[in-house]
Design a binder for these strands. Structure first.
Lengths: 180, 180
DNA sequence: GGTTTCATGTAACATGTTACATGATTCT
DNA sequence: AGAATCATGTAACATGTTACATGAAACC
């Protein structure tokens, strides 16, 4: 078998919920996974092609629109996917340009640093707001399998708690910058 | 000028503190920047070469060991670096394989999910421990410019607060998984 | 009739990782 | 003497992003 990139698993996970087109996968990724995952077309389409060749997925026949290609996970794909779920996850190194900059900002005027932090805080406030919205939507229970709810909620809670921690850190650091 | 990758700025930031070899840069990156940044040799050496050609850095002459090449930031490099510090930071999309897996884990046995979360919690406990250690070292004030201390401290505080938030989230989610 | 969304895909570019090769120096 | 660390670098591979091209269908 060819390469096993992480995008493949994201795609298998999405197709395991429902057969989808490449476009659907992108939409799901942008809407639901954004915050901790991202995909782009330049990656999705070639990966789908490769997965099709490997027999992980197949094409569902006969849509209204001939241009539309809807893929479904195969038995082989599901096995690969479930093996991945059970694998140990090695954590990959993060890259935060913001933190890199901040570490090196001792020569900047303090006002500039404070401005950077306020901006960053605002961004995270917006994120937390989005997660809270999504949590409300989830409570209304829109056509989502009941057994998946605790998992979606866990992901949203993570976004909220982490975001709030960053906001508190921003406040604290802004204070510190004003004093120092 | 050629490309302006982010590694270049990390390297400029390090060289702005003190002239260093490629090896030193890697060490600094692993020790101080790890947690929010990473570099590897396969990237550092070619980038140094490119930066030398662009006149961002130069080679300090006459080391004891001829094999050792020590680079210093030039005036041009410093200007480029300071412009970067002032630039707005666009946040790049994160990719957390752990969160992706968790979202898709509704079919797994609950014990397996709890085990995953406990593992993840332990990892973050270790991280927080490391940051606390580094904070202690910082208080002892080992040859670090006084004006940089608040910035290093801010970075460490971020690591601690974020880590603690993740740990709390793990506890909460483990509880939730036991109940659901 | 015009704008937005749906839909697929490629090419060029940019970035990042791993394995390998080589050898000196320092520590135990 | 042997192991660990210092030190540089390349090649192959893997991954990821952006811009472009194309056009249908749905919405207003």
């Amino acid at each position: 078998m060819a390469l096993k990139n992480k995008s493949m698993y994201a795609i298998l996970g999405i197709l395991n919920l429902a057969p989808s087109t490449g476009y659907d996968i992108k939409k799901y990724s942008d809407k639901v996974l954004s915050g901790f995952w991202n995909e782009n077309f330049g990656h999705i389409y070639p990966t789908l092609k490769m997965m099709l060749e490997d027999g992980m997925i197949n094409i569902l026949p006969g849509e209204i629109n001939e241009k539309k290609v809807r893929y479904a996970i195969t038995e082989k794909g599901r096995m690969e996917y479930e093996a991945w779920l059970l694998e140990e996850t090695v954590q990959q190194p993060a890259r935060s340009e913001f933190m890199l900059k901040l570490l090196f900002s001792s020569s900047l005027p303090r006002e500039k640093v404070i401005f950077m932090l306020e901006d960053y805080k605002e961004l995270h406030e917006k994120n937390v707001g989005k997660y809270l919205e999504m949590q409300k939507d989830l409570e209304q229970g829109n056509a989502i399998a009941r057994d998946r709810v605790p998992f979606i909620n866990a992901v949203l809670r993570r976004g909220i708690l982490s975001g709030e921690a960053v906001i508190r850190w921003c406040d604290e650091t802004i204070e510190e910058m004003r004093r120092a």
